[in-house]
């Protein structure tokens, strides 16, 4: 029987597919080894009573059941959500402002470089730096405050200020990088659209609301979704500056997972908490993508 043209085409595609597979293989192996296998193992471990050093014993859904009634777990979830609300809006607005400055006011690469420096520093270094800057006894900021005749501000040691202070530290670190992404988005806005609006007499505010923001929506959606995921994963700054305190003011979910897994040897329990966090983050990201229509453009 003779081959039909369709069959021949499929065969040639199969051949191409095999070649592509070969090139994809290294990253597929990496993806499987470092993502899929650990994720599946994570699901398994969350159903065990693994104590980190011994052999895991299967306990079914017991860990999940315990977590649902664990006040500490839900409190740490609440603290984390509060942190996200302190962090994201301010960081996004500041990044947008800086991006506009980079786009409209100065094209200086030195300025862009300076803006990016905090993001280039390791998290631990940033946390230590701010821990000392904000220290009530010997920190530069409080020495200045005191030299103005005011009382020192307990940035990291009062229950009210600790969480916003940690959010502030992370905003300082991340806003330059976020601004750079938004700046790249601004570069993609066709100038003629704005020029046309200018000729029509549109005010700067109208141009910002009607042209710049709608054009930026996919970029902002990306920035907000990735920042929200990143914010939920806040750990290092807390571990260095407040260790979850004062009381439980900064006891975020990652600290809960770390302490249970690595300090209390409840690795199965900690893994179950990670799984719940994973599901919550999936849900939050999905909602954000739907609300922000992340993959669509208005133009």
């Amino acid at each position: 029987m003779r081959e039909t043209p369709n069959k021949r085409k499929r065969k040639s595609l199969d051949k191409q597919g095999a070649g592509a597979l070969l090139f994809l293989l290294p990253s597929l192996i990496g993806f499987a080894a470092f993502f899929i296998v650990p994720a599946l193992r994570g699901i398994f471990l969350s159903l065990t009573d693994w104590d980190l050093l011994g052999k895991p014993g299967f306990v079914g859904l017991e860990n999940y059941g315990k977590l649902l009634t664990d006040e500490e777990f839900w409190n740490s979830m609440l603290v984390t959500v509060k942190y996200v609300f302190w962090n994201i809006p301010l960081q996004t607005v500041l990044a947008l402002g800086i991006a506009l400055v980079m786009d409209r006011v100065t094209k200086s690469s030195v300025f862009r470089g300076i803006i990016l420096i905090p993001w280039l520093l390791p998290n631990v270094v940033v946390a230590l730096l701010w821990l000392w800057l904000l220290d009530p006894a010997v920190g530069v900021i409080n020495s200045t405050v005191q030299s103005w005749g005011m009382k020192p501000i307990n940035f990291l040691t009062s229950t009210e200020l600790a969480l916003p202070s940690i959010a502030g530290i992370n905003i300082w670190r991340h806003m330059g990088y976020t601004a750079l992404i938004v700046f790249a988005g601004l570069q993609g806005i066709p100038r003629e659209v704005e020029e046309a609006a200018l000729i029509d007499g549109a005010s700067p505010w109208t141009r910002f609301i009607r042209i710049i923001l709608p054009y930026l929506r996919p970029v902002l959606a990306f920035v907000i979704i990735t920042s929200v995921i990143g914010s939920f994963q806040i750990y290092d700054t807390v571990a260095i500056t407040t260790r979850g305190g004062p009381i439980t003011a900064t006891y975020v979910i990652y600290l809960f997972i770390f302490k249970n897994g690595f300090e209390s040897y409840l690795m199965g329990y900690a893994t179950a908490a990670s799984m719940i966090l994973f599901l919550i983050l999936m849900g939050v990201s999905f909602l954000q993508m739907r609300i922000m229509r992340a993959s669509e453009s208005d133009f």
Binding site: A137, P152, L156, T157, G245, P246
Partner: peptide
């Protein structure tokens, strides 16, 4: 005694 807020770190 120095207050907690000053010595917590």
């Amino acid at each position: 005694l120095a207050p907690y807020e000053m010595t917590a770190n």
